[in-house]
């Protein structure tokens, strides 16, 4: 009834509304079948025990409690946080730097933009395989270049200390182009008059960047930060291809740990519980960021406008 009054108030004709829902039906059905139902099923599974290809009984929250006592779960949480932090800290400032460079009128600017964007649209598995070769301790390009400048490179992916660094570098490399493009769009949305006014007032390049560009890019930065955190938190394929979580669990991110529990050991209940913890963490991070960006970021942008 309420819905009806809303629709009638909105001024749509009844036929139009029906047509709209008929057109939307496939999307709604697909969303329900492939997003909502699996989510509900995994929530049920996370409270259950799995054996012999089906659920064998409900165990309450014991899957969640088991996580607290599982050192490999805590390890995967830590690895995921370090990965997320690393990729974010590297790819955001570098993305901004690239965007600033691309914003200058240079020859072949479209070519440069395409080149920087390429990693973001390269298949992760293919990129992972190529980077695995590049990180080869003996004949990989990375250590070869290091040797040229007189540094003896580490064993990278076979080293418990360096494997995560290597994976973070590749993760940031893949992220960089996307960040740069969004920043570029943000830069081009900054009104030119502001810079002209600042120039008249005698502001130098750094002051213009710090007092005009930065604040105006804050909403863009928040958007990228949220996307980067959400994406990095769910990283799976890149790590799967490059290290399989090793050596010594040093790159075992949560996504990979979940996968190992689910499809290596068939602990579907435990894996579903891990999936829900990942979901909750991402959800909380998103809420916090939206809260902060809602009061600070967007406001600043709105004011400047």
């Amino acid at each position: 009834m309420q819905a009806k009054s809303y629709w009638s108030k909105s001024g749509y004709r009844k036929d139009d509304i029906r047509a709209a829902f008929i057109c939307l039906a496939p999307v709604i059905l697909i969303f329900a079948a492939f997003y909502m139902l699996p989510m509900i099923y995994s929530a049920v599974l996370s409270l259950a025990e799995w054996g012999m290809g089906s659920m064998t009984g409900f165990v309450g929250f014991s899957n969640y409690l088991a996580m607290f006592k599982d050192p490999y779960f805590w390890n995967s949480l830590q690895v995921t946080l370090v990965y997320t932090l690393g990729v974010t800290v590297l790819s955001l400032p570098l993305g901004l730097l690239v965007a600033l460079g691309l914003n200058v009128k240079i020859p072949l600017s479209n070519l440069w933009r395409s080149l920087y964007f390429t990693p973001s649209v390269t298949a992760t598995v293919a990129a992972g395989i190529v980077w695995t070769r590049l990180f080869d301790p003996y004949d990989g390009l990375v250590n070869h270049l290091l040797r040229v400048v007189g540094i003896r490179g580490p064993a990278w992916l076979s080293s418990p200390e360096w494997a995560l660094v290597a994976v973070i570098l590749v993760g940031a490399w893949k992220r960089l182009g996307f960040n740069a493009m969004i920043y570029l769009a943000g830069l081009q949305g900054v009104p030119g008059e502001l810079y002209e006014a600042a120039l008249v007032d005698g502001a130098n390049a750094w002051q213009r960047f710090a007092h005009i560009t930065c604040p105006l890019l804050l909403p863009t930065t928040w958007l990228l930060l949220i996307m980067c955190v959400i994406d990095s938190f769910q990283v799976f394929d890149l790590v799967h291809v490059m290290t399989s979580g090793g050596p010594m669990s040093s790159t075992e991110v949560m996504g990979l740990y979940l996968y190992r529990q689910a499809f290596g050991l068939f602990h579907m209940g435990y894996a579903s519980a891990i999936a829900w913890v990942i979901f909750l963490l991402v959800f909380i991070a998103t809420l916090v960021q939206w809260k902060v960006s809602g009061s600070g970021g967007a406001g600043a942008y709105g004011e400047a406008r």
Partner: peptide, 18 residues
Amino acid sequence: ADGSIFGFEMYSQVDETG
């Protein structure tokens, strides 16, 4: 000695199932 060839290869990764 330069790391180009090892005498033996022993499987040392813990992949999906170990």
